[in-house]
Write a protein that binds this DNA or RNA. Structure first.
Lengths: 259, 259
DNA sequence: CCAAAAGTGTTGCTGTTACACCCATGA
DNA sequence: TCATGGGTGTAACAGCAACACTTTTGG
């Protein structure tokens, strides 16, 4: 960073003094490099079995990893790691997710880049954070171990770094986006009933929805397909089973390519 | 990056092999560092004076910087540069904006982090991109020079790197956000008429809006304050002058702190 | 038959669109 | 007084929330 080989970046100062950007205090020769990492907030819906109750409404959970070195040794943190030279940002998030849960995400989106000067006591660090949704049935058989544990999204301990803020922001994005996109589908299995889809919305948004109006809203959005099958066994009228219409995207990301 | 001092990042592999994340191919000792830069898409509204016409509807413009070194020597690019050790991401965007235009942004928001493996021919580079709005009256007296020039946002030349995609995405975000936030105000001066505010929306969205309905929508949003003054001189009824209500934010960024 | 949840119908409210109309000014 | 844009009023429409009602199963 002390020569003029900076591949990208063009300041106006370069017009009068091409070297200016490389010789000021910000990039002095003895400055350490800025670390670059990718972390992921992974959401899944789980039946809250902490009380052993049956038929309880599912809630949002996310996996955390216990740190085994300073800083924040012993504290829980978002899964992540340094960005590899040969992988894209989303690839790194996918890898992280797989290493932590053994799963592949049904939905993955970049959340934000966090780069405050003092966010890590161990040196300057910029984290590009993704958020992901995994299916509840898959999440049930996800990896668990001494240093990986699932937590309810609304009852997190004090996390390492600024990770509490990051999770708060991810939750806000999830709830905001739930109201105008189809991402709820990413939390369910291959087929599902409308009641299950409604439960997802209710769990994420934290409020009850009218079954009749919810049905019409979803049917009118043309994002689901009737499979013709039913679920029997319950002591009520058998509900229809639906499937996603894979031809419509879960969310509109504008001109960005799919992750 | 070859020892275990990685300040952040916690993979599940660490459970069985704490050093795994630091010894695999992604961070081999001889790997070069990944470059980290901040770029900014700066929007301003300008009367299109290319044809010398008067009273023409204003359109979106943005400043670009001509590169004076490889790769892409001679091509136009977004203003930006390497992130300094002692500045936050938004600070770097602000600095870039000031160095390019001599202005301070009225609105600044992180757009996206671009990090494809092959996006720069000169080595691995991750760019955290911001987008900004500056006031048209200020933009009129912004810096211009041999290597800084303003372009109409919809008639850009072929830019360096993936900067055409980045501008497309910034435009998409601007247009999307214009419909549900108050960011249009950031493109205007201290005081303005409702017709001017409507012109901003029309220029950005690319369609005509009903003056009557637009008035009611804005007045109902409680984001503007009547100054009690009028604009005289035109050969029509003098329009009221309004001012922003500074107590309301231009946009809702959830739990994120203000930039 | 009853409980429970699926699924349908209907009504009233609210916000938006389209457009007719009046107002105040400069020339 | 006329042209021009500022500003107000209003009827029609669309979408949605609330809720009554019917349907289909297991016990």
């Amino acid at each position: 960073m002390t020569d003029d080989t900076t591949p990208e970046g063009t300041t106006a100062a370069a017009e009068s003094d091409p070297a200016a950007a490389d010789t000021d205090a910000r990039t002095s020769p003895d400055a350490e490099a800025i670390g670059l990492a990718v972390s992921t907030v992974i959401f899944a819906l789980r039946a809250d079995d902490r009380f052993g109750a049956q038929g309880v409404a599912p809630t949002l959970w996310l996996p955390l990893v216990r740190r085994i070195r300073d800083p924040f040794d012993g504290r829980w943190a978002l899964p992540g790691g340094p960005l590899g030279m040969t992988e894209g940002l989303a690839d790194a998030a996918r890898r992280t997710l797989g290493e932590t849960t053994g799963l592949a995400p049904r939905y993955l989106e970049q959340l934000y880049a966090f780069g405050d000067v003092d966010r890590s006591p161990a040196g300057r660090m910029v984290s590009v954070v993704y958020w992901a949704l995994v299916r509840s049935d898959e999440a049930a058989r996800a990896t668990v171990g001494q240093n990986v544990r699932w937590f309810p999204a609304d009852e997190l301990p004090e996390l390492a770094f600024d990770h509490n803020l990051i999770v708060d922001y991810a939750l806000w994005r999830l709830r905001t986006k739930m109201e105008y996109s189809r991402i709820a589908h990413a939390l369910l299995g291959e087929t599902f009933t409308l009641a299950q889809l409604r439960e997802v919305h209710e769990a994420v948004l934290g409020k009850r929805l009218d079954p009749a109006n919810f049905r019409r809203a979803v049917e009118g959005s043309d994002s689901i397909v009737d499979t013709g099958e039913f679920v029997t066994g319950a002591r009520n009228r058998p509900p229809k089973l639906y499937r996603y219409d894979a031809s419509v995207d879960l969310a509109d990301n504008g001109p960005l390519p799919h992750p």
